[in-house]
């Protein structure tokens, strides 16, 4: 059974990455994704930034302009995103969650809620 976003962050549940694909163990509305210097807010079908595919228990994000995420995200960098968990009110700012995705070894990614040290303007 899929865990809530809060449980995923608290229990430090990992996601996965392969090439330009990010596999996130939750379903959400994506509002903003920042990778390197690219600030992506267009998630429509015509977007050439990110292709989002929702599956039963996870979500795939394909970064179309990158071949391999490992090549662009270094040790201290992260992919940042503002998301709203599926089922929650997208118009309530309290439901907007800022996440930092860090790439680790063996295709694993860690999902952390952005702390106050990290610069992240919604």
């Amino acid at each position: 059974m899929m865990q809530s976003l809060k449980e995923i962050v608290t229990n430090k549940v990992s996601g996965l990455t392969y090439g330009n694909r990010l596999i996130l163990p939750f379903k959400a509305h994506f509002l903003k994704v920042i990778i390197e210097k690219d600030v992506i807010t267009d998630f429509s079908n015509s977007s050439c930034g990110i292709n989002i595919i929702e599956n039963e228990n996870y979500t795939d994000l394909y970064f179309l302009e990158y071949k391999n995420l490992d090549d662009v995200i270094s040790e201290f960098e992260s992919i940042k995103m503002v998301v709203v968990e599926k089922g929650k009110d997208i118009f309530d700012f309290k439901n907007h969650v800022k996440l930092n995705i860090y790439l680790q070894d063996h295709h694993k990614i860690s999902i952390e809620e952005t702390d106050s040290d990290i610069l992240f303007i919604e």
């Binding site: 210097k37 600030v39 960098e77």
Partner: peptide
């Protein structure tokens, strides 16, 4: 500076 600002989410 541009790069840091963009990474912080500023267009």
């Amino acid at each position: 500076v541009k790069s840091i600002s963009e990474r912080a989410g500023i267009k």
